[in-house]
Design a binder for these strands. Structure first.
Lengths: 350, 350
DNA sequence: TTTAGCACTCAAGGCAAGGGAGTGCTAAAG
DNA sequence: CTTTAGCACTCCCTTGCCTTGAGTGCTAAA
C-alpha cells in the first residue's frame, strides 16, 4: 500500500528534523515546516496513520514522533535528496587526498581516517575480501653469519620482510639455494598446504638448511594469515561519545568495543554495489542493531577493492554521509586510476 | 613536617578504601577498619589535620574524605605495600607471553595489548626514544621491467620494504649498481642530509637511474620518519568507560581522544628508571591532569628499550597495577634476554 | 589526648504541584 | 469525505519542599 504524497512529505520532515534536533517532532512544527498549508490537527491524523503503518514511533503517548527503522529506510530509498557535496566539503576532501599515499595497508588506513574526520563519525576501512593469499616470490638476503632477511611478495603484490636468525651459520650460497627451493616449491601455495610440502622436502635437504627453511616458512605463514584476515582499521571511535544517543556509557561501550575489537565482523559490501546503507536492525551484528552503517567501496588498481564504512546512530545524517562518502570513494578510485600522477597501485609500505 | 604514624595509617586506610569503593570515606568506617582502638571522634580530629595539611580533600562539608594528589603521592611513596603478583596473575601473564612474538613493532603493540588486558586499564606502548635513525643497508630486487622492491634495513635493525614503480624500464644490473651507490653514499646518513647528498650525486648519474634513485630515497625518508617518531600503540581505551569517574562523556571523550590521537605526547621514562608513577597534576599533559599514569620499561635486546604506560583515574589501584606491570616488564626483559628460546631481538615484521 | 554527645550541614531521594508540549477525539465547517 | 478548531487528557520534566541519613565540627568532660 503506497503512501500518499503528503504522508511522505510528513515523513521526510519528521526524519530530517529528528536527524537535526535529536528530539521527537510534534505536529505543530510539522505543519509550520510544510508552509502552513494544513493545520496541525490534520497532521495529527496523518501522524496517527504513519504510526499505525510502522513508519513512525512514539516514545510515549504525549510525545512527538520519531522515525522507525522502517521509516528511515523509506526516507533513504525515496525521500532523501541526493545531496551533492558542497564546494567547501569537496575542497576539504581534496586537501585530505593531497598527501602522499603509499602502500596498500597505509592507503586503506589513511582512507578510513580521512573519512572519519570528514563525516564526524567513526569509520572502519578494510580491503575487500578475496580468498586465500599465496606467495608470488621469495628473496633471502644475507645479513651476517647467523641472520638473513626474508622478503616475501604475495600474489596481491604486498611485500613484507623481516630479519630471521639461525643458530647455525648460513652463507650466501646456501641462501640462494634455499631461495630457489622456495620459489620452486612454495609459490602459489596456500597456507594449508605448506605443512605437507615442508614435510616432503625436509628429507632431501642438507640439514644446515633446515632451520632457515622452517623459519622462513613460519614467517610466510604469518604473512599469509595477516593478509588473509584482511586487517580492519578503525578510527574516530571517540566521535561516538559526542552523539546524544551514546551518552549512556553502557551503550557507548558496547559499540566502541565492537569497533575496537580487531576480530569484529563489520558489514561488508558485495561486488558491484557501490554503496549501501544499513539501518538499525538491518544489521546482522547484534551490537549494531540500533546503529546504522554506510559502506562504500573504491578501486585500488589491479582489481583490488577497498571498503570504507561509517558507523553512527540510526539518527545519523544519511544524506550528508552518503554524499561525502561516495564523493570520497569516487575520488579515490579516480586517483588510483590515473597512475601517472601517483604510482601507488598495489605496492605496500609494510 | 613528618606525619605521625597514626595519621599515616589513616591516610592509608582512606586511600585504599577509596580506591576500592570510589566514594568518600567517613570517620566511622576508618575507626572500625583500624580495629576500633580509637573512636570516630578521634579520627575526625586527625582527618581535619590531614585536610589542613593537604593530604585529603572533602567534596563538601558533610561528606567523607578523599585522597588528594598529594595524599596519593605519599601513599605511593611510603604507605603502599609492594604487592607481589599472585600465582594466578603470574600464570595469566606467562600465558599471554607464551604466544609467538616477532618483529619490533608488533612486539611493542602486543605488549601494550597484553598489559591493558592484564590491568584492565587502557595502555600505550612505544619504543624508548633514541635520536635520529639511519639506514644500515639497502637492497633492490628486480620485479619486472618497470618495478623493483626496495628493502631498507635501519641501524636499529628494523627492515621495511616496498614495491616501487618507475616509468622507464630498469634492469637487474642497473639496480645492482644503484644499490651499491646507495650503500656507499646513503648509509649512516640522517634524513636531513639526504637532500644535499642527492643533489651532489644526480649530476654524475646516468639519467635512467635518476628516477629509481629518487623513489628509493623518498621511500627511505618515509621509513626513517616513521621509525624516528616512535609510533605509539594504544589499546583498551574502552576500559575507561567502565570507570565511574568517566561516566561523564565529556571527560571520557577528552582522555579517549588523547589516547587515540597518534601525535599525543604521553609520558615517557628516562633511562635507568625502571618504573614511574605520575599522579594527576604531576602530569605535564593538560588532559592527564586528573588521571594517573604508570610507566615501565623493558629491554628488547641490542640496547633497545620498550615503554609501556597504563592510564587510569587517579583512584586507580596503584599497588596492583605497579605489581603487574613491573612483573610483566621484567618477564619481557628476561624473555628477550635468553635468545635461545625465541630469536626476535631487533628484527621487524613490517 | 581522647571521647561522648550533640547540633549542624549537605547530598540525595521521595513527593506533590505546576507547566508545557503534544496528543486524541469530537463536532462543526468546507 | 476531508479538514479544522476546540478541548480534555496524558505524560514528562522541572521546581520546590521535606525527610532521611551520613558525616562533620565543636564542646565539655574523662
Amino acid at each position: 500500500m503506497e503512501l500518499t504524497a503528503r504522508k511522505k512529505q510528513i515523513l521526510k520532515v519528521v526524519t530530517e528534523r529528528y536527524i537535526d534536533a535529536a528530539e521527537p517532532v510534534g505536529s505543530k512544527y510539522i505543519a509550520q515546516a510544510m508552509g502552513g498549508a494544513v493545520s496541525s490537527a490534520t497532521i495529527r491524523n496523518e501522524l496517527a496513520d504513519l504510526v499505525e503503518l510502522g513508519y513512525l514511533e512514539q516514545p510515549h503517548t504525549s510525545a512527538g514522533r520519531v522515525p522507525s527503522p522502517k521509516g528511515y529506510r523509506l526516507y533513504v530509498n525515496e525521500l532523501m535528496e541526493q545531496r551533492a557535496v558542497s564546494d567547501q566539503e569537496a575542497s576539504q576532501i581534496n586537501a585530505a587526498l593531497g598527501g602522499r599515499m603509499r602502500g596498500l595497508d597505509s592507503v586503506i588506513a589513511q582512507a578510513g581516517q580521512m573519512v572519519s574526520s570528514i563525516v564526524s563519525y567513526p569509520a572502519y576501512a578494510v580491503a575487500a575480501g578475496k580468498g586465500a593469499v599465496t606467495v608470488r616470490r621469495f628473496d633471502l638476503l644475507p645479513v651476517d653469519a647467523n641472520s638473513f632477511i626474508a622478503v616475501v611478495m604475495t600474489a596481491d603484490s604486498r611485500v613484507k620482510s623481516q630479519i630471521l636468525r639461525t643458530e647455525l651459520p648460513v652463507d650466501a650460497e646456501q641462501l640462494t639455494a634455499l631461495a630457489n627451493l622456495l620459489n620452486t616449491h612454495f609459490t602459489g601455495v596456500g597456507p594449508e598446504e605448506t605443512g605437507e610440502k615442508l614435510m616432503g622436502l625436509t628429507a632431501q635437504l642438507p640439514p644446515e638448511l633446515f632451520m632457515p627453511l622452517s623459519l622462513t616458512i613460519e614467517y610466510t605463514r604469518e604473512v599469509m594469515d595477516q593478509s588473509a584476515k584482511n586487517q580492519v582499521f578503525t578510527t574516530g571511535q571517540t566521535q561516538l561519545l559526542l552523539q546524544p544517543e551514546f551518552q549512556d556509557p553502557a551503550r557507548a561501550n558496547e559499540l566502541m568495543s565492537l569497533l575496537t575489537d580487531k576480530k569484529a565482523d563489520l558489514p561488508v559490501l558485495d561486488e558491484n554495489t557501490p554503496m549501501q546503507i544499513l539501518i538499525g536492525p538491518e544489521n546482522v551484528n547484534e551490537a549494531l542493531k540500533d546503529a546504522s552503517v554506510v559502506v562504500a567501496s573504491y578501486d585500488i588498481g589491479e582489481n583490488m577493492r577497498g571498503l570504507i564504512g561509517v558507523v553512527g546512530p540510526t539518527r545519523m545524517d544519511y544524506a550528508a554521509v552518503a554524499a561525502r562518502l561516495s564523493y570520497f570513494a569516487e575520488s579515490l578510485t579516480k586517483m588510483f586510476g590515473k597512475n601517472n600522477q601517483l604510482p601507488p597501485k598495489e605496492d605496500n609500505i609494510s
